[in-house]
Design a protein around this nucleic acid. Structure first.
Lengths: 207, 207
DNA sequence: GTCTATAGCCAGATAGAC
DNA sequence: GTCTATCTGGCTATAGAC
């Protein structure tokens, strides 16, 4: 019993190493340019061994997305545990976390066009469950922030949710980072500013 | 002389048909999933004939991007010709145009990771020239809008420019459209609202 | 310049020994 | 479960006739 558990633990560690490589490669090159050979080489095992753990390239990507959502949920729970925060501050915190994750090269991005990949994700119960839970947790904060008058009440919560989600694959931070003239902190501050206050910023009396 | 000119015209019409197909397919499936066979079938010619017009798949995509930038410049000039507009209103108009183009399925999107494609684009003088001209035209409006106090002066113009550019590949409109509950006009209005005023909207007195 | 046919290559997936 | 070696399909690109 103990041996079996140990074996399973070894298995999980190896699979976690695989998912880590996939996560990094997805963040770096995207799904289409990532090859299974690369993943195998990065993990340090043979390609055929990969296929003993995951049935397809799509399954690899799905596993990376599941882990991302799990980490997102962990982050959400950590932020939810902070006392004396407004809902807007919590939304701000989770969005900043996503931006820093992206700037660190750890945010896997998937092409929204790829149909085989979409099919795999929509068939994954754990992925869908996690996505729904993340959406619901954020949705509660959004509704609360609107009740507080902190987020524009005329925006449907759906619009707010998608806008927050979209920061995870926003190309602006990477472009600003590529320029090399700004720190990650500065970049995140600006993107958060445009996200919350918009380009026009707080309305000044004369405007 | 007239015959030669006529021949060249026929050639350009055919090439324009090719670029139209590429534009649509790029908007629909993206570069990696678009195959040259599809383009040929869509145009109604043999694949080998395509390669008489364009040297590679990357060249096809580059041609589509050049045409997009040309159309963008045309739109910019039309907006510039409007009398009695503030710089912010012109920026608003061109961004709205990009959003409608995207919702119409006519906005080609390229993967930012693909290196062979990047190389092709960076080697294309007409692409780079057009990109620079579009950036400069928008840059003038941005600086003017900041001088007017309409756009937050603490934002570097670079940040504003990238934020405007990013609307062209913003995933939010497509998600909202996929929901099927909103009109294109409504979607564009919301996205423009979040772009200019942010999620928090105009600061209310109590906030 | 257009076509048919095919070369050449690469990447996802598998066979089968250990 | 791990490996080496291989299969298979699809895609870019080209050869060569007309």
């Amino acid at each position: 019993m103990a041996r079996l558990s140990f074996r399973e633990q070894v298995l999980r560690v190896r699979e976690d190493a695989i998912v880590s490589s996939v996560n990094r490669l997805l963040a770096d090159k995207g799904f289409d340019l990532m090859t299974v050979d690369e993943v195998a080489a990065d993990v340090g095992i043979a390609k055929a061994s990969l296929y003993k753990h995951f049935a397809s390239k799509e399954a690899l990507a799905a596993a990376a997305m599941v882990r991302l959502l799990q980490r997102t949920l962990t982050e959400i729970e950590a932020i939810a545990a902070r006392p004396d925060c407004t809902a807007l501050q919590r939304l701000d915190a989770v969005t900043r976390w996503a931006l820093y994750t992206q700037l660190a090269g750890e945010m896997p991005t998937l092409p929204s066009h790829n149909s085989s990949l979409r099919a795999e994700l929509l068939a994954s119960k754990s992925y869908l469950d996690l996505l729904m839970e993340v959406s619901e947790r954020l949705g509660e904060w959004i509704v609360q922030a609107q009740a507080d008058g902190a987020i524009a009440p005329e925006l449907p919560p759906e619009v707010v949710l998608y806008t927050v989600f979209a920061r995870a694959c926003d190309p602006v931070p990477a472009f600003l980072k590529a320029g090399g003239r700004f720190s990650d902190e500065q970049i995140v501050d600006w993107v958060m500013h445009t996200c919350l206050q918009g380009l026009c910023g707080p309305v000044r009396s004369g405007a």
